[in-house]
Amino acid sequence: MEIKVKILRFNPETDKRPHYQTFRVEAEPTDRVLDLLEKIKGYQDGSLAFRRSCAHGICGSDAMRINGMNRLACKTLVKDLSKGTITVEPLLGLSLIKDLIVDMDPFFEHYESVMPYLVNDEPPPLKERLQSPEERERFDDTTKCILCAACTTSCPSFWSNGRYVGPAAIVNAHRFIFDSRDRAGAERLRILSDQFGVYRCHTIFNCTLACPREIQITKAIGEIKRAIATGSLD
C-alpha cells in the first residue's frame, strides 16, 4: 500500500524556518516508521537527516514525534498508526540541528549532573559486591532506560524551562539511589532537591506515556520525592 509521510524538514544552510514535506512511499503494514524513513532517504531524497543506530529499540537514537507522540521510529509499526498520513517531526524542547536531528547536549548535561554511575569507596570484597534478588528488584524498572530522551522532551516543565533536569536524568538517579551497593544517594537527593530538580515535576504523566521501555517514570520521581522527605531508601 502507498503511504503518505509528512516530515518536518529544516536545513540550517538554506531554510529560515522548518517546513513540512510530504513523501509517498510503498509500505507493508508490518513496516516500521524507520523503514519508511530509510526508503525516503535511499530512493527519494538523500538529504533527509535523522539518527539511527541499532534499529531494534535498544540504542535510543531514533526517538522522534510520530503522529504527535514521542516514539522510537524503529519500534513503531505502520499498522499501529491511524490510517492516512503519518506525520514525523523532531523532538520538542531541544534545539533543532537539521530535519529530525536535535541537539542532545543539554539532555546529556542534565544526565551527567545526577552522577549516573556507581559510587562506593568501601574496599571491594574478594569476589563481588553481593546483592539479594529483592535488593536488585528495587530499582529494576529504572535500569531499562535507553536514554532516548522521549520522556524529557515530552515534559511540559522541560519545554518551558530547559534548566529542569528532566525525567530521564531523574530516572537514572533513581537507578543508583535505590541500588543497595551505592553510597552517594544523599548527594544525588541533594542535587534533585534543588530548584530545577524533582519539584519541577507536576505529575503530568507525559513521560510515562512516552517511554518506549514502559518505565513507570512518574512513580520513580514520586519515590525520589518521598526519599527526600523521609531519608528512607526502602
Binding site: 532537591s193 519539584y199 527526600i228
Partner: peptide, 13 residues
C-alpha cells in the same frame, strides 16, 4: 532498611 541523611531543607522542598 537503608536510610540516608536527608538533604538540607530547600525552599522548594
Amino acid at each position: 532498611n537503608r536510610t540516608v541523611p536527608q538533604p538540607a531543607m530547600s525552599f522548594e522542598y
